[in-house]
Nucleic acid binder design. Structure first.
Length: 239
DNA sequence: AAGTTAGCCAACCGCCACCGC
DNA sequence: TGCGGTGGCGGTTGGCTAACT
């Protein structure tokens, strides 16, 4: 019978919400003792009023050794995005390629950043099709004599691209502008624009021995879904 | 300075696949 | 072979905090 059911029958309510330090310590102790497979057993044996699932999640996402927290590096960003392009929302698969990162962390990261990217893309498309019902657009052209400053970076509103003489629009390329709904998005758009647009580029970068290349992941051309990559880059050698 | 908004992240929920009985 | 238990996974939520107005 499921632990949750047993607990419910006994009138024992399972704890929810944030974990306390004592709970963490206790969980670590019992995982070391019992291993990290039988979570229902760990939950019961430890006396934690948590479900096995909850214990498992806490261990995998926070307590297990060699876990990395905090800032996702540029290398990791690129790998995440590329693997997401390839596999979609297979967070656990992606996480396995990034030692120390959890599926939850990657999922959260993607949700935030992919959404941001989608918004930017939508804005770019809107701009390229013309003004949105005459509303003020959000694009600013980078310029030394800018009239707007944000976090030390300065911008000025882009010139109106509507040709009033004949009512037509000039074509505006992404590379001509920095997207500046925020300075952060500017950097993000820069990053997106740097991103290889097809796998042949990725392959050539993967094969490159250039030491100044950011890429240290293997090529994926010709590799099967479940095949392990011949990982030799620094990212996989992290301790 | 106070209120509001947006971003981030930990944790929960529900579904599904696998396994043992 | 069917069923219940369990773990794994992706989606979602809620709280905290920083940034903005």
């Amino acid at each position: 019978m499921a632990y949750e059911t047993v607990a419910a029958m006994q009138g024992e309510s399972l704890r929810k919400g944030p974990w306390h330090e004592e709970e963490d310590e206790r969980l670590i102790t019992f995982v070391k003792l019992l291993g990290s497979r039988r979570w229902d057993y760990v939950a019961r044996a430890s006396g934690l009023k948590r479900s096995g699932k909850s214990c498992r999640l806490r261990w995998l996402n926070y307590l297990r050794p060699n876990i990395k927290h905090g800032h996702i590096s540029a290398e990791e960003e690129k790998i995440i995005l590329q693997l997401h392009e390839r596999w979609g929302n297979k967070w656990s698969m992606i996480a396995r390629r990034l030692p120390g990162r959890t599926d939850n962390e990657i999922k959260n990261y993607c949700r935030t950043h992919l959404r941001k990217k989608a918004v930017i893309q939508e804005q770019v498309e809107t701009f390229q099709f013309g003004r949105d019902n005459g509303k003020q657009l959000f694009l600013f052209q980078e310029d030394g004599s800018s009239s707007q400053t944000c976090n030390g970076e300065s911008y000025k509103p882009c010139v109106d691209t509507l040709d009033n003489e004949n009512g037509s629009y000039e074509t505006v390329e992404l590379s001509d502008f920095a997207l500046t709904s925020s300075p952060y998005q500017t950097r993000l758009s820069d990053w997106i624009s740097e991103f290889p647009s097809d796998q042949s580029e990725i392959k050539s970068q993967g094969e490159s021995n250039s030491t100044d290349s950011l890429y240290c992941y293997p090529t994926w051309v010709s590799y099967e879904e479940n095949d392990l990559w011949g990982c030799s880059g620094s990212l996989w050698n992290l301790e």
